[in-house]
Amino acid sequence: MLALNGSSSWPTFSFIGIPGLEAAHMWISIPFCLLYLIALGGNVLLLILVRVEQNLHEPQFYFLAMLALTDLGLSLSTMPSVLAIFWFDVHNIGLNACLTQMFFIHTLSSVESGVLVAMAFDRLVAICAPLNYNRILTHCTVACLSGAALLRGATLLAPLPFFLRAFPFCGTNVLSHSYCYYPDMLNLACGDVTFSSVYGLVCVLCTFAVDVIFILISYVKILGTVMKLGFQDRNWKSLHTCACHLCTVLVFYLPLISLAVLHRYSQETPPILYTTMSNAYLLMTPLLNPLVYSLKSKQIQAALRKRFWVQRVVAGE
Rank of each mutant, 00 (worst) to 15 (best):
T12N: 09
S75V: 09
L40E: 06
L150F: 14
I215N: 05
V117N: 06
T155C: 13
A3R: 07
L288E: 01
N289R: 10
N279R: 06
N279A: 13
G41Q: 04
W236Y: 11
V50D: 02
K228D: 10
H240N: 10
L256T: 01
A118Y: 06
I16M: 09
L4Q: 05
D233N: 14
Y182E: 00
E268P: 00
V204G: 00
S110M: 15
S178T: 11
I257A: 06
F15D: 04
L295I: 08
C180Q: 02
A149S: 15
W236V: 06
L108A: 08
P271L: 11
I16T: 07
L64W: 15
F163L: 14
W309T: 12
L282R: 04
F208D: 01
Y219G: 02
A158Q: 07
V313I: 14
S7Y: 09
F208T: 01
T276G: 10
V193N: 01
L83M: 15
L46R: 05
K221N: 05
W236H: 07
Y181N: 03
L95P: 02
G41S: 15
V314M: 12
C190W: 00
F208N: 00
Y36D: 04
L295Y: 07
F195E: 02
K237R: 12
R307V: 08
L156E: 11
G153N: 06
P290A: 13
P270M: 11
N5C: 14
P183R: 08
E53G: 00
P270F: 02
I222G: 12
L145C: 13
A166R: 06
A23P: 07
W27A: 15
G73N: 02
S278G: 14
F252S: 05
H57M: 04
T141R: 13
S176H: 05
S109M: 15
P286W: 12
R123E: 09
A302H: 13
I85Y: 01
H240I: 08
Y199I: 01
L4P: 00
C203F: 01
L131D: 14
A97H: 03
S266Y: 08
I257R: 02
N173S: 14
I257N: 00
N96V: 09
V226A: 15
A68H: 09
Y36N: 05
K221E: 06
K221T: 04
I222V: 14
E22C: 06
Y62R: 14
M79Y: 06
G20L: 02
V261K: 06
L250V: 10
L262W: 01
K298F: 13
G6I: 15
I127F: 13
A243D: 08
P290H: 11
P130A: 13
R165M: 13
H245A: 01
F308G: 11
F162S: 12
I18S: 07
A118T: 04
L259F: 14
G153V: 13
L124D: 05
G73F: 06
Y182G: 02
T107Q: 08
W27Y: 10
L254C: 07
L291Q: 09
F167N: 08
L160M: 15
L116G: 01
I127Q: 08
E268W: 14
H25G: 12
T248L: 11
Q54S: 11
N55A: 09
A97Q: 03
L229P: 00
V220L: 13
F195A: 12
A120G: 10
F32I: 15
G191K: 00
W10C: 13
L46Y: 12
V117H: 06
L273V: 12
R165S: 12
L186H: 07
